[in-house]
Amino acid sequence: MGLPKPSVGPEIAEVQRVLEKSGLEYKLHGYGTNLEGPWDDVVRVIGECHQAVHALGCQRIATDIRIGTRTDKSITSGGNDSKVKRVVDILASEKK
């Protein structure tokens, strides 16, 4: 927000660079980026993303965040990708 152009591609690319350096799992999609990891790390990296985009000259940033946590089991890997795979597998089994 606060840029003289409608495209935010360069700013999103900078966010992806920050996420790559973070070591956290992330996945860019058409309307945002999924970010996975320990709470403190995720919040810290979101702040780093804001700092990086401000450094590009963007004076105002709005970030929408949806947070999900669980205490019933530990998620060791796969996170959101495994959720998607589960649904894809269900749909595939119906076609057999």
Score class of each variant (00 low, 15 high):
residue 87 V to W: 04
residue 77 S to G: 07
residue 33 T to K: 00
residue 43 V to M: 14
residue 79 G to L: 01
residue 26 Y to A: 03
residue 90 I to C: 10
residue 2 G to Y: 04
residue 4 P to Q: 05
residue 42 V to T: 03
residue 62 A to H: 11
residue 22 S to R: 00
residue 46 I to F: 01
residue 85 K to C: 09
residue 48 E to M: 08
residue 25 E to W: 13
residue 49 C to L: 01
residue 22 S to W: 00
residue 34 N to G: 11
residue 2 G to N: 00
residue 69 T to P: 02
residue 75 I to L: 10
residue 51 Q to A: 15
residue 27 K to C: 06
residue 34 N to W: 13
residue 13 A to E: 11
residue 53 V to Q: 00
residue 21 K to G: 05
residue 65 I to C: 06
residue 7 S to F: 12
residue 25 E to D: 15
residue 12 I to V: 15
residue 4 P to C: 06
residue 77 S to F: 12
residue 20 E to V: 08
residue 60 R to D: 06
residue 73 K to V: 12
residue 34 N to V: 15
residue 46 I to R: 01
residue 59 Q to H: 13
residue 26 Y to T: 00
residue 45 V to F: 02
residue 29 H to Y: 10
residue 79 G to H: 04
residue 88 V to F: 14
residue 25 E to H: 11
residue 66 R to I: 07
residue 15 V to W: 03
residue 96 K to Y: 09
residue 36 E to Q: 01
residue 3 L to S: 15
residue 37 G to C: 03
residue 77 S to M: 11
residue 68 G to T: 05
residue 88 V to N: 14
residue 20 E to H: 09
residue 57 G to F: 06
residue 86 R to W: 14
residue 40 D to M: 08
residue 1 M to K: 11
residue 25 E to N: 13
residue 91 L to T: 07
residue 6 P to K: 15
residue 16 Q to S: 10
residue 61 I to A: 01
residue 93 S to Q: 13
residue 6 P to N: 13
residue 15 V to R: 02
residue 62 A to G: 10
residue 50 H to R: 13
residue 39 W to F: 14
residue 87 V to G: 00
residue 91 L to Y: 09
residue 9 G to R: 15
residue 23 G to E: 04
residue 49 C to Q: 01
residue 63 T to Q: 01
residue 47 G to K: 02
residue 17 R to H: 08
residue 57 G to V: 06
residue 61 I to P: 02
